[in-house]
Design a binder for these strands. Structure first.
Lengths: 197, 197
DNA sequence: ACAGAATGACACGATCTAGTATCATTATCC
DNA sequence: GGATAATGATACTAGATCGTGTCATTCTGT
């Protein structure tokens, strides 16, 4: 008999092999949730252990100390946000005037999402303590989007900057909600017109 | 006989009236230095007390608890960074094609400085815990610069966004050093050309 | 079946931190 | 001069947190 998905305390003792495979994922799921909500300093290992329904010793066994958990959580968030950019290449090859617009709208919606904004904010906040994370974040994030745009326009960096723009700055400061698709499309059209694209 | 400016332990007992006037400034000077370097969570009151050559009780007497010290430090930083925008109005009235360029260069250099970047990073990092600081920061900072530009160009928000651009994002992540004046001027000229200004 | 590995529950030590209290010392007020 | 206020030095309380230790429990490998 298998235990209910969220049924009280986890059973004791050594886990089965299939449980072991899920274990690390569950820990990182909880870490991502908590770090996004409360930031690095606002999450204790006890709280993370409770959230992951695991003990601290198990966290050390599967991931490591707090800094390693944070690094792994950021890495997972990077992989979670960036696959949205994968269809870029496919879209880029699609001819027609709307290819650029479609890509831009995807980019705006993705990078203004709660997850992407939370990641961006965390990396900025901890750039002092985790400089390697900042380097990796920029290379895997903004730089990659800029490279994708470089196949389509002559000024990819400036286009990327404008696609984020002040709304993105305000999102980082927690001043606005994520834009609706309609707002994102309007923003994209405004930017493309401004740059004569 | 007056004590040397930075000569060992401060003398005990009730301070003179002139000392009282300086006291709060010295505390906030130290707070600004430490918060910029180590962030809100990275500064303890003991450390702040040592840096300000004062005891914790005196900090409570002059400023308040840690959150009030942080709020006061951010307010002081806002006042410290923004006076650079005061000459905006005077420059704006100066006719000639170089008025906009001169203002833009000032803006780029100021907002990429270590102090401005440190403030921006701190406000982003603590936007969850101090949402009022984020609101005040955007209104007194970016919004104010955008308003100043609105007298000179038809697309002030977009111009502001481009004047910061990816170099500013990279500065927030600790990836670049502050731009030289030459780099700032080159960046401004590139942006103004792109927008046909 | 049995030894060993991995876990949850619980506890513990060491460290750090916010905020307060005590006491001697120095300035201000009357 | 004497009372009062404000300070530095120091210690303290109370709580949080990181990282380990102990022990019973459960799975894996042989």
């Amino acid at each position: 008999m298998t235990r209910a998905v969220d049924g009280g305390p986890r059973k004791r003792g050594r886990p089965t092999e299939s449980e072991r495979e899920q274990r690390r994922e569950e820990i990182l799921d909880a870490a991502v949730r908590l770090f996004l909500r409360h930031g690095y300093g606002g999450v204790s290992l006890d709280r993370l252990a409770t959230e992951a329904k695991v003990t601290k010793r198990t966290i050390y066994g599967y991931v490591g100390d707090k800094t390693e958990v944070f690094t792994a959580a950021v890495a997972r968030l990077n992989r979670e946000v960036l696959p949205e950019a994968e269809p870029v290449d496919r879209q880029a090859r699609t001819p027609g005037a709307n290819a650029l617009e479609a890509l831009a709208v995807r980019l705006v919606i993705t990078l203004h999402s709660d997850v992407a904004i939370g990641l961006h904010r965390m990396v900025v906040a901890e750039a002092h303590q985790f400089p390697d994370l900042a380097t990796g974040f920029y290379a895997a994030g903004p730089q990659r989007y800029i490279d994708a745009l470089s196949d389509l326009v002559p000024c990819p960096e400036e286009l990327f900057t404008l696609l984020l723009g002040e709304p993105h700055r305000r999102r980082l400061l927690g001043l606005d909600a994520p834009p609706s698709r309609a707002r994102a499309e309007a923003h994209v059209n405004g930017v493309l017109q401004l740059l004569d694209l």
